[in-house]
Simulated scan of single mutants.
Amino acid sequence: MSPLSNIKQNVVASDGSTGAGAGRQLHSSALKSLPRDMIALSDYSAEQIAGLIESAVYFKHKAKHEGQAFHPDQPLKGKTIGLIFSKRSTRTRVASETSAAYLGGHALFLGKDDIQLGVNETLRDSAQVISSMVDGIFARVGPHRDITTLAKYSSVPVINALCEENHPTQILADLMTIWEVFGKRRPNANGILDVFRGLRLAWVGDANNIAFETIATMPKCGISVNMCSPAGYPIPEYVRNLAEAGAKTTDAQVKYFSDPIEAVNGADIIVTDTWVSMGQEDEKAQRMRDFEGYQVSKEMAQKGNANKDWIFMHCLPRKPEEVTDEVFYSDRSVVFQEAENRKWTTIATFNALLGNKSN
């Protein structure tokens, strides 16, 4: 029996109650029709995304409020998840290993110095070999083609733990955090997607993989997006098209800016990320010049007329030039809650895509 079937009328809230904006409309049935792989959330419907968040909320509640250290049914019992990491990681590695353990499975870490991935063996060959010995692959790679190649030739589900174009588990954690905050402010909302409807997120920073996943996912869930990046750092046309298609289904808005003050106007959520990603170290000096004026601060929010109860999010690790300490360590900041939710959404994803079907 699915653990979600135990939720009667409401999704449990992060504080242990069953109200708090949890709503009454559930989307757990949408988890029965998920794609085999999770490459990008653009492949998932809003209802499927909501179902994963509901599942994550449930697992967090059971662990933190009812003391459930491990899933009683052990849906990954006897299963191994291959964790292929070609880039270093903190949150993603901790979240994935603890998630596998919570569900009764075994996480096999395969770092870039441990295997021949794309070095002395092709990705195709590695995918076929590794997938013949594990029950799922969670891969943190570089180019987008690496994750799609792994999925194409793998005989087991592949979950994208990060690539240069996408980071789906991060955005699931972001959405879960947004629900936890705004669900309490909207106690009469009828479900997770109803909590999201009408919110506005301002992205102030680089046009990177987190930005791509954000703008391709949030509008179809009902969240309007103000996307702000400097001239010369555009959002690709295909990502814009995904954003516009999603917005049409919910009446959300997608707007583009280069002036951060304009971008935060009316924002409920202000988000930024690193300006210099791994592999871009040689560009740091130029990027520091290009992103001058992009540091998120209380002054920026005030000048731009952000909504009075705006919150700040960042996927971490954070550097001081991206956001002031005054914001980062303030009551408006939910960055550590957001980081923790990487675990709960990874548990939900592992359970849905890799768990025993009887659980």
Rank of each mutant, 00 (worst) to 15 (best):
N6Y: 13
K8P: 00
Q9K: 15
A13F: 07
G19C: 07
R24Q: 14
A30T: 04
L31G: 04
K32S: 12
A46Y: 09
A46T: 06
E47M: 01
Q48C: 00
Q48F: 00
L52S: 09
E54H: 02
F59Y: 14
F59R: 11
E66L: 10
F85T: 06
K87N: 15
R93S: 13
A95C: 08
S96Y: 08
T98W: 07
A100N: 08
A101F: 11
A107N: 06
G111T: 01
K112F: 14
K112N: 15
L117H: 10
V119H: 12
V119E: 12
R124Q: 13
S132W: 04
S132I: 00
S132N: 07
G136M: 05
I137E: 11
H144E: 14
I147L: 03
T149M: 09
Y153A: 09
S155T: 13
S155N: 10
V156Y: 07
V156E: 10
P157Y: 02
V158W: 03
I159T: 08
I159V: 12
E164P: 05
E164R: 04
L172R: 03
A173F: 02
A173M: 05
D174V: 01
L175H: 05
D194C: 10
A207K: 05
N208F: 04
T214R: 01
I215C: 11
K220T: 00
G222V: 02
G222P: 02
V225D: 09
M227C: 15
P230R: 12
E237H: 13
V239I: 15
K248S: 15
K248L: 13
T249L: 10
T250N: 07
Q253A: 13
K255F: 02
Y256L: 06
S258H: 11
S258M: 07
I261D: 12
E262I: 00
V264W: 05
N265F: 05
G266H: 01
G266P: 10
A267D: 12
D268H: 14
D268P: 04
I269Y: 13
V271A: 14
T272C: 13
D282N: 13
R289L: 15
D290V: 10
G293W: 09
Q295G: 03
E299Y: 01
A301F: 07
K303D: 08
N305M: 09
I311H: 05
I311V: 13
H314F: 03
E326T: 00
D331Y: 09
S333K: 06
E338H: 04
N341A: 04
K343A: 10
K343Q: 14
W344K: 10
W344V: 13
T346I: 09
A348V: 02
G355H: 07
S358N: 15
